[in-house]
Design a binder for these strands. Structure first.
Length: 468
RNA sequence: GUCCCCAUCGUCUAGAGGCCUAGGACACCACCCUUUCAAGGUGGCGACACGGGUUCGAAUCCCGUUGGGGACGCCA
């Protein structure tokens, strides 16, 4: 069975790039009928807080990426990591190193100056343990192969190799006895029976070292797939500095999780010319061979375009439930009692006109206002002189419209327009201004139907009386 | 500096030697529809980084150059 995992470190939120990694792993597992696991890489105690872990859970949940079993805490497995290091020590495949930080810095500088890749010179590698200086706690280093090469058969990048002369003896266990990342990932991935490690490209060079570790431990390598990184609009790796946001920031911008999933999926993966891809379709189609090799830039405009599509196709009552809280917030006390029912009926006209839920809220205000409604500058201008005259002529005739439907209303207004020798637009625009307080809105006859006859006549009266 | 990876329209991508006069999507522009704005429809602008090979034939294969990115911590 195929088992994948997502292993974020808790940094305060679910990073957008991490979300994509999680999605790919989730999809890959689902496609193959396998399992998807979650592991929190919280060994850096300074950075790990419960809030940060919760933020990851919340982000995953929002995206609908459920994981199998309980999330694993890497920190809680530190004894097992140390045990693996000791095992290597006993087998003579690792050794104690007593170098001080100062010595290491010196070595590093020297190596750089000489153009050498080996930053640690291996000075304790074959030294007699009896030479150990007193009072210095040693680290444990892997006795890595000095010659030959390490080859990775990467399912996304292809065959990648490096000469072992480039790799020095990495630290496995720190002086304080805690495991390093390299040790922890390898031990955890092995113990969690991860079969496929799909992660960002930035781990590609780490993989060589991890492969050496697997070898020393006598374990089989999982299958690796290194996906291209997500870049900011400036072309550099997405980071906090580059405006990389947590997934919840996009939720707050009014992005739907469906749109986010679809967008993230298409960043670095494709299935021919398909753009709009449902989750079921994604599960059916997703595989590693569809993943590209080059980095992709994040493009908000395309995300919004996808979002607009998902809003347009979303269930009306679902959209109402998303919009209502924000609307109450924005309008506070001046919310009409009829808001919810109006929203439900007006949603078809509203949802075609919004790229985000935030815009939807803004546009939905016309159905939430209690009389008298606010009139913006452009609408006020339309209501001057001629526009006002049109409403004066039209309003009385509205009482005769039966039934009160969009079609009947339009028919009546057309008759009035003809009588006045006016174009339909000459009446529609003033009606819009008076009824919505704006120069932009859904079809005005639809708005009238949703508002109902009483509210419509009332708002028109407000406009005529100047009581706005 | 050393090592690793990448390279098709502004952006995301299709393309696995002839189907390519390089296709789609977003963005942009124009037109149509039209009561405004959207949506929708039609059309337009717009790319194989460069140089060498290999081949009858290269966006596709090889080499180099250039450009971009990543990794080089007792961080993860």
């Amino acid at each position: 069975m195929i088992v994948t995992r997502f292993a974020p470190s808790p940094t305060g939120f679910l990073h957008i790039g991490g979300a994509r990694t999680a999605l790919f792993n989730w999809l890959f597992a689902k496609h193959h009928g396998g399992e998807f696991r979650l592991r929190i890489e919280d060994t850096d105690r300074k950075r790990s807080t419960q809030e940060a872990v919760d933020a990851i859970f919340a982000g995953m949940k929002w995206l609908g990426l459920n994981w199998d079993g309980d999330a694993v805490s890497q920190f809680e497995r530190r004894d097992r990591h140390a045990e693996a290091a000791r095992q290597l020590l006993d087998a003579g495949l690792a050794y104690h190193c007593y170098c001080t930080p100062e010595e290491l810095t010196e070595m590093r500088e020297k190596a750089r100056a000489e153009g050498s890749a080996r930053l640690y010179d291996g000075r304790w590698r074959d030294r007699d343990p009896a030479d150990a200086p007193a009072g210095i706690a040693p680290v444990i280093r892997l006795k890595a192969p000095l010659t030959g090469e390490t080859v990775i058969d990467d399912k996304i990048q292809g065959e990648v190799k490096v000469s072992n002369e480039q790799l020095d003896d990495m630290i496995l266990l720190r002086a304080d006895g805690t495991p390093t990342y390299m040790l922890a990932v390898v031990v955890d991935d092995h113990d969690m029976e991860i079969t496929h490690v799909v992660r960002g490209d930035d781990h590609l060079t780490n993989t060589f070292r991890q492969a050496q570790l697997y070898q020393a431990l006598g374990w089989d390598l999982p299958v690796f797939g290194h996906m291209p990184l997500l870049h900011g609009s400036d072309g550099a790796k997405l980071s906090k500095r580059h405006g990389a946001l947590g997934v919840e920031a996009y939720r707050d911008m009014g992005i739907l999780p469906e749109a986010m999933n679809n967008y993230l999926l298409r960043l670095g993966w494709s299935h021919g010319d398909d753009e709009i891809i449902s989750r079921d379709q994604a599960i059916e189609w997703f595989d590693l061979d569809g993943v590209g090799k080059s980095a992709a830039r994040f493009d908000m405009a395309k995300l919004e375009s996808l979002n607009a599509h998902y809003i347009r196709h979303a269930d009306n009552s679902h959209l109402v439930s998303l919009v209502l809280p924000d609307l109450k917030n924005a309008l506070d006390g001046s919310l009409s009692d009829d808001t919810e029912t109006r929203l439900l009926r007006g949603m078809p006209g509203l949802k075609d006109r919004a790229k985000t839920i935030l815009e939807l809220v803004e546009n939905a205000k016309i159905y939430a206002y209690a009389r008298p409604i606010p009139i913006n500058d452009k609408a006020a201008k339309i209501l001057d002189g001629e526009g006002r005259r049109m409403i004066e002529h039209t309003r009385p005739r509205l009482g005769d419209v039966t039934p009160w439907t969009q079609q009947e209303i339009e028919q009546m207004v057309r008759v009035v327009a003809e009588e006045l020798g006016a174009k339909l637009g000459n009446i529609a625009q003033p009606l819009r201004a008076a009824l919505t307080g704006s120069n932009v809105s859904p079809g005005i006859f639809e708005v009238m139907e949703v508002l109902g006859r009483d509210e419509t006549l009332g708002r028109l009266e407000d406009a005529l009386s100047g009581d706005v």
